[in-house]
């Protein structure tokens, strides 16, 4: 075996080990979170603070994302559907897409960028300035104090943010379809309501819950494992956003398959 092959195998081996090590660390964090859930009382005031920061503070971003996604998707669908004379049904495709994919995924990506980065930066700064050690020195587990309130806040906020994004997306869709392209409002709502059902809402809520958990676990882990001062905080912040976004997109695919198995598409109730 020559040197280049050996080097390649060594690099691949290291990458695989790092990958396994990373998942091991996430697993340990999840285990500590579960232990915290069982053994300690939730810190309600910290959770409320985080709901304000995560949920309330993300509304503008989420509303703009939902509204303009709904608007542009309506416009694109209208341009194509018009060729087939079915432009009055745009509401149905926009609604299903917003509930099942665009709402959860785009909201998740926006929240990963806004909240995940903030979490990793804040916790990372606390780590490098010994504030986390100060918590530990006073007998306070960092997972109890920092991660769990964020976890609860995120799992509560994400489904609501997604619902908000979808609502504004549909509102914008109506605005573009009815006021912009002249589709009768009654037709728009009839098709939208006919083709949207409880399963679509379930898709959005379940995905929101899972994406919220992914973002908070990955971002808190990045924050808690920060080293190397200000440079390290920057790296953790970047990694939190990138890893959360990638994990969200990959998980979305498998979650879609699973949810489609549970709630098969096309079974209108």
């Amino acid at each position: 075996m020559d040197d280049s092959s050996r080097g390649l195998i060594s690099t691949l081996g290291r990458a695989v080990l790092n990958f396994i090590n990373y998942f091991g660390q996430l697993g340990i964090l999840l285990g500590e979170g579960f232990e915290s859930l069982v053994k300690t009382k939730p810190r309600l005031h910290l959770m409320m603070e985080q709901i304000v920061r995560i949920g309330f503070g993300s509304q503008v971003v989420v509303i703009v994302t939902g509204a303009f996604t709904g608007a542009v998707f309506t416009a694109q669908s209208y341009f194509k559907f018009r060729d087939f004379g079915i432009e009055s049904t745009v509401g149905s495709i926009v609604s299903v897409s917003l509930f099942r994919e665009l709402g959860p995924v785009l909201t998740g990506l926006m929240v990963a960028g806004r909240v995940g980065a903030a979490m990793a930066a804040e916790i990372g700064t606390m780590k490098v300035s010994e504030q986390i050690d100060a918590l530990r020195a006073m007998g306070v587990h960092p997972v109890d104090y920092l991660a769990m309130p964020r976890f609860f806040a995120m799992t509560i906020s994400m489904p609501l943010l997604i619902a908000e994004a979808v609502a504004f997306g549909l509102g914008a869709s109506w605005f573009v379809a009815v006021l912009g392209f002249g589709i009768p409002s009654a037709w728009f709502w009839m098709h939208t309501i006919d083709h949207t059902n409880l399963e679509d809402l379930s898709y959005a809520m379940i995905k929101g819950l899972v994406f919220g958990m992914l973002i908070v676990v990955i971002s808190c882990h990045q924050g808690l494992s920060t080293t190397n001062g200000a440079v390290g905080v920057g790296q953790s912040t970047t990694r939190a956003v990138v890893f959360s976004s990638l994990a969200l997109l990959v998980t979305n695919f498998f979650l879609t398959l699973l949810l489609n198995y549970i709630f098969p598409m096309g079974t209108i109730t």
């Binding site: 700064t125 606390m126 300035s129 010994e130 504030q131 050690d133 100060a134 020195a137 006073m138």
Partner: peptide
């Protein structure tokens, strides 16, 4: 425990 840089919560 008094930390070298005090480690106060910001």
């Amino acid at each position: 425990y008094l930390f070298q840089n005090a480690a106060l919560f910001d």
